[in-house]
Design a protein around this nucleic acid. Sequence first.
RNA 1: GCACCCGUAGCUCAGGGGAUAGAGCAGUGGAUUUCUAAUCCAUUGGUCGCAGGUUCAAAUCCUGCCGGGUGCGCCA
Length: 598
Amino acid sequence: MRDTWLVATPFLYRIACSNGDFHHMTTQNSTITTLREQLAFRLREALLRAGLSEDVVEISPATTSKFGDYQSNTAMVLAKRLGANPRTIAERIVASLNVADLSAPPEIAGAGFLNFRFSQEFLTRRISCIFDDDRMGVPFACHRKRIIIDFSCPNVAKPMHVGHIRSTILGDALARIARFLGHEVITDNHIGDWGTQFGKVIYGWKHFLDQDRLAREPVEELVRLYRHTHRLEEENPAIAAQARKELVLLQQGDPENLRIWKQSVELSWKEFEKIYRTLEIHFDQCLGESFYNEALRPLVERLLETKVAQPSEGAVCIFFPETPELTPCIVRKTDGGFLYATTDLATIEYRVKTWNPDAIWYVTGAPQALHFRQIFAAARRLGIQAELVHIAFGSILGEDRKMMKTRSGENVALAELLNEAIERASKIIAEKNPTLPSEERQNLASAIGIGAVKYAELSQHRMTDYVFSWDKMLSFQGNTAPYLQNAYVRIRSLFRKSNAIPQETCAILLESPEERALALRLLQFGETVSAVLEEFRPNLLANYLFELANLFHGFYEKCPVLRAENAIRHSRLALCHLTARVLSQGLSLLGIRAPEKM
RNA sequence: GCACCCGUAGCUCAGGGGAUAGAGCAGUGGAUUUCUAAUCCAUUGGUCGCAGGUUCAAAUCCUGCCGGGUGCGCCA
């Protein structure tokens, strides 16, 4: 079971994770590459021509617009290596640089920076390309991989709570983005449907089951049975022994206990499905822990035979003498039982055998870092080659800066939290747009409320512990989902009002600074999406979308669209349309809907 | 005890070797008879926890402290 609740420490651990994979890309339309790629290509050519080493091709967006659009630090890095003057090296590079079709010759500034500023012609040409591209300039990854993403993983007979939200939302966004970049993705919800908790649940079921409550609130009833038994066990060791016996019976295949177990799983799964429906998230596979039961015994036998594991004090352990900080990993207990490490290893083997993936990503809280280091190290010894990545994240805090809990100190149920999000959104819509029909409002409330929760998660660096605040995430100001959705709505409203449909490419005019800034940002969509998977950071995309929406609002303020003259009007409508498409696509990659009205 | 993560504006957070450290919120001052003001513009505010080190260049990398959090043989 991967309980994602006890989560607090940001930590990233990766094994053999690729670094350069997303640096060379192609699109369906081979003439489209990102701005960054184009400059990097030219710079590489120039370095070769100038007889300089071409392995230091650094291009990044300018830190401030007064330094142009993009900058390169290559000259300084090379100068250091050669013991030469950076500005001299910069001059050599510029002399060999052929960028006439992109920009004026770059300026050499400061300690030896190269500052590029694109020409209007180039930008307008690029905007036209992107306008005609249904991927809006997002290239496919050059190495397309088959990736299994393991996320969400709630536990049966327990309610899903806030602890699961980060894994679920992050995992889903990463899956969407990876797919969009051309990877083959298999999402697998590794449900915690087997484990010691069932001894207590079954004992409780047999002695204190309330059928009515089970029909009404199945998961709550299961939790009650678990807790009740647990409490009794603490006072009475005999009951603890009986509960353990129920567990053993279940593991031995006792029909009655198996039936109870199965029913618990089904009831829980129905609850999970409701939540996933609300979140609009689905999984390709839902192979829970129980799926691997049969594989555990032979796996441990094999681990022993191959000397990957050793008997130790009656248990079976994998030791890691080469990494002293890795404590031994138990794969079979003294009583013959197996642990989640065993299941995780069996799961890796199954996945490799069944799908032969290039990578398996685990979107799981940071506290489990050590566990994954152990599992990954063990998998290596078993000869597993696939890239194994633990995509870790921090915890969600309450307004008191402590781990988010209810007033009574319990985990916050996810279902209730999502309902509250929708209700709050509904209330806000009713205030701001009272004329909206109530059906429409309900649908909208879901898009806005759920979008707000997802965006609050995804706009944050995954490692940081963030404070959960309704007021902030549902605000229409600042870096929030409603703000982005509103930008989209404004554009859609323009088109409804004007009856304009920008189908054909028209000449794009970028005369005002606002138009130019908006266009430049639109052209950066491709490199932004591509960058997300380099370190598994959807917040890069979120930040991009926020800046795009912000630039759009600035443009909208300064540049009349419908009131403009013919050519300018067409051009501005085209910019609006492209902005809407990028916003909508970007939000969709984060799993957030862009409504037509608000 | 060992290990890991975090410490940046009053608050919430970006930035993770490059130029004078940025946003949002809050505060202050403006714009607007709207192309949905659900917006925009301007402005105040920082010893990037502390101290060393590496470097032409450190918030960023290394070491050591301090503070907060978390994890570490038979739970998941």
